[in-house]
Design a protein around this nucleic acid. Structure first.
Lengths: 117, 117
DNA sequence: TCTATAATTCTATATTTATAGAATTATGGA
DNA sequence: TCCATAATTCTATAAATATAGAATTATAGA
């Protein structure tokens, strides 16, 4: 991921409503949620949400698809992974020891990671 | 890291000059760089840089110390790690498989991570 | 103490972002 | 085709951010 793209993604998440939308979509998984449901869930007007969803979409953090009259939004995990990679490599540039272990919230995480090693 | 703090850190990095400052400070390491050198290095006026450095500082991504007449800024790796943890846990909430392996740039990284497992 | 240096804070201005009602577009069913 | 629903785009306005010169503060050396 290049720097311009990273800045766009960072800016997309640097706002309360959008970060909440993203979190909501992450928990919703690949099935996603229709725009209206997201707006209702956050208690914001449809036009405001539409603005934020477009922002997240431009940033590559969510994707959308039409399904009958609804437009379904879902988290773009590849996009998020791209951002995390950018930050990690940026942060660790030349000094990898300073940013790892990246996550160690509870034993389960360590076990999970052990699998991939 | 809580959500307000994460938004501040994301916002701090979501701007070209500040992201460049942070990258510069990461490569500079714990010794850091004086404010003037950072400004000169980026070709921006001192007052502009001061504004951005204060922003990064508020966000917990850099720290400063006075050294004679200079003020030395350095990357706060703990702060950055906090942000990465927040994002990773947020992104992976309920579906950890979607965001790992987080980094796999070259064999060295895998070896490095293997040590921590 | 006086002067030069390093940086910040003050101030004004320009730019970008956010909010939300009104108007518009797209879809599906009667 | 006509109507209701789901969303977006348009528009205006408010709020936050970014830029940079001028003034101020802090430190060190002569």
């Amino acid at each position: 991921m290049e720097i311009k793209q990273a800045i766009e993604a960072l800016g997309a998440l640097a706002q309360e409503t959008r970060l909440e939308v993203f979190r909501l979509l992450v928990t919703a998984g690949p099935e996603g949620l229709p725009a209206g449901e997201i707006a209702e869930s956050l208690g914001a007007p449809a036009s405001t949400l539409s603005f934020h969803l477009a922002y997240l979409s431009r940033a590559g953090l969510v994707v959308s698809r039409r399904e009958s009259r609804s437009i379904i939004y879902s988290a773009n995990f590849d996009g998020m992974r791209g951002l995390l990679d950018f930050l990690t490599q940026d942060c660790c540039k030349g000094r990898p020891e300073m940013c790892s272990p990246l996550v160690e919230p509870k034993p389960a995480a360590a076990a999970r990671r052990a699998k991939t090693c």
